[in-house]
Design a protein around this nucleic acid. Structure first.
Lengths: 210, 210
DNA sequence: GAGATAATAATCGTATACGATCGCAGTCAT
DNA sequence: ATGACTGCGATCGTATACGATTATTATCTC
């Protein structure tokens, strides 16, 4: 694993954890010092993330966590739905006991934050697909939404609402019932994202930069 | 537009043109000299492309155009289909005369190579969606397949087979008939990609690195 | 005291520099 | 002649260095 890979992972994990609020600027030499490297590999990692849309570069102002418009949030949700459905279709016939156990584990895991645990669950279900690129795309979409999901959950007081939906979805996967699983995933994603989008719309209407 | 942006565009365009065959290694200082810059922005651009899966970095061996397995080609096709359908749905109600004219123009344009013209046509249809991320994803998938599409067409003797399908699709968009357009796009993509995938399968069976 | 302007400090972007690694050519021993 | 070894050239990865740009503080004027 190269230096650039390590830096990239650190920043992605920070995003998935919600440690980087929208708008946060990333100081290249600070990050470089923290990791004990020079700016060069740091910049290369940031450029990777900007290619994925997880960061935004502005000339002479460096990289920052982009703020999402409502339209972009909707776009992300639609993309997520259509990609995740295809991956799940591909994954279910290939799922092993291990994959299912990993998904189960992610559900109860109190070590992880809400968005981390959520993504760990979904990734566990998808990994049997073997679709490297598709998985990467979905991870990106999760990471891009994470800061806002966190804000939304905070505004709710910290409840994780989709526990039971996750359990149902897991059961359908266990039984190998592709069509039911796809139906459950579709409605689960629709509910989760419409909640966040409504939350975003309210704030956008109020003129908040969130 | 930053230096990194320029370098990135040059390489993506080379890929879409098919100027970079699978397996080609990219020499950083050669490219840097050609563009009159140092290695730093070149490497940053290559890292962006590697994040998108258009290039593959190997430690101490730099970046190279990845060779696609049949499984990956199938994955790309499925992803393309599901993403492009959603974008087209979003785009049709927002299409302007200009978008349609651009698409028409791309069809007949003999200046462009086959894959370039094909992508120009599809992009023209999609741009009205306003979906930045979705468009970027689809462009990536096109660029990843382009080297192989080129090889396939070469093996056929250079014929562009999907002219009439394109015209039908364009007509449906003009009439604003979303469902017909989606049907046409779906079958068009299915045909085009299954041809390339069959071609790839043959070569993989023969043990060619293509 | 408030606002505008100048000086200073932070930060960015990229060129240069250099050690590390890889691949190949030439040499030697068998 | 063939196979292993050594040395050199090419290429990579990253640290350092520096000019350019942006932010911040200090100073001056009204």
């Amino acid at each position: 694993m190269s230096t650039v890979d390590r830096v990239e992972r650190v920043v992605i994990d920070d995003l998935l954890r919600g440690a980087l609020a929208p708008g946060t600027r990333i100081r290249q030499d600070v990050l470089a010092d923290q990791l004990g490297v020079s700016k060069i590999p740091v910049r290369e990692a940031l450029q990777r993330l900007s290619a994925l849309g997880l960061l935004h570069f502005e000339t002479n102002r460096g990289a920052a966590v982009p703020t999402l418009s409502v339209a972009e949030a909707i776009e992300n949700s639609v993309l997520r739905k259509s990609i995740e459905v295809e991956i799940l279709r591909q994954a279910i016939p290939n799922m092993s006991i291990v994959d299912l156990a990993e998904a189960e584990l992610a559900l109860g895991n109190a070590e992880l934050g809400v968005t981390e645990s959520n993504w760990a669950f979904h990734r566990a279900l998808y990994q049997a697909s073997g679709w490297t690129r598709g998985l990467a795309m979905v991870e990106i979409l999760h990471a891009a939404m994470a800061p806002y999901v966190l804000l939304y959950i905070e505004s709710l007081g910290g409840a994780e609402p989709s526990e039971s939906e996750h359990r149902e979805l897991l059961a359908a996967c266990r039984e190998g019932d592709v069509e039911r699983a796809v139906r459950l995933l579709t409605s689960h994603l629709a509910e989760a994202s419409s909640a966040v989008i409504d939350f975003l719309s309210m704030n956008e209407a109020r003129g908040d930069d969130v």
